[in-house]
Amino acid sequence: MASATAPPPKPATRPANPSSAPSLWTIPAPLQKLFNHFPLVTLKSNPLPARSQILTSASDTLPTLYIFSSSADALQGKPSINPTCLKWQTLLRLHHIPFLTSPSSNHASPTGSLPFLLPPRTTTSPHPIPSSSFPAYISRSTNNPHPPPPTPREEAYLSLLTPLRLAYLHTLYLTPPYSPLLKKFYISSSTTSFLLGTILQSQLSTAASAAVLQDLNLHPQSGPGAIDLDNLYAEAAEALQSLATLLQESPTGWFFGRERPGEFDAGLYGYVGLIMEYMDTPEAKLGGLVRQAGGEGVLVRWWGRIRREAWGEFEQREK
């Protein structure tokens, strides 16, 4: 440290132990008395810079959800382009919890991944709330009891999201025709430089490839060529089929017969919402798989319902 001064001890602690031996870090009383007179003048604080005011000071009362998004979309609170961010953003909206959104990157996150919530400024800098604490945050904010932990049956169905995730990762990150979309999603928001963009995009693809290989128990060095694509997409199709069947069994139209769409619905919507929005073209496999699942467009109808529930205002604006 540049400065070797001890911080002035809190006044309350000083009389409490007057007999204790003065340590190196306690300031002698006369010096403390002198210090208390300084500074002689305290003026009002300096206002924050423009960029900070625009990006972080739009509201004194609302928390901010940091998500992958473009700055224009985030300003309007539009859906994120990242499955996990979209999941939590959708769930918060389903619970009618008000929040702002801010475009961000993993570097901003306390856990290294998005999303996270940042409560409004108080006298000190707020501590971020990681997504793992969102269910507790939602139950606090809505005065509802904490949702019960997932049952073993729910856990089993939760694992069906993995093949869907791998197929999604492969499509977006490792399929060349989707490279412009990947760039639009994750690169354009942070840099306009071609060189830096290319470096960041190759880092993203490498990380996605490593994640897919790891989940398939393949050697990380074997490269994306080692992935059995037919099998990858077949498993995704099978998972979507099972999810559609599960949904058909539900009397309420939401997963596990819930009255209101819950975390599981939001989690699946994170993928299905993005697939239907960006990958529902004739040549895209994933859009077709979602449409075919259940044979009767079960998932598409469910997707439409969530969209109305959570994103109704944007749907109407688009019309």
């Binding site: 924050l48 810079p49 960029r51 900070s52 972080t56 961000s104 570097h107 306390p110 501590h127």
Partner: peptide, 25 residues
């Protein structure tokens, strides 16, 4: 190429908003 990363738990909103990559030429 500048990368603002490894934020402290109590980093301010201003620093969080500027975290990430940028290129200065």
């Amino acid at each position: 190429w500048r990368q603002l990363t490894a934020l402290a738990p109590n980093a301010s909103p201003t620093v969080r908003a500027d975290a990430g990559d940028s290129l200065k030429c």
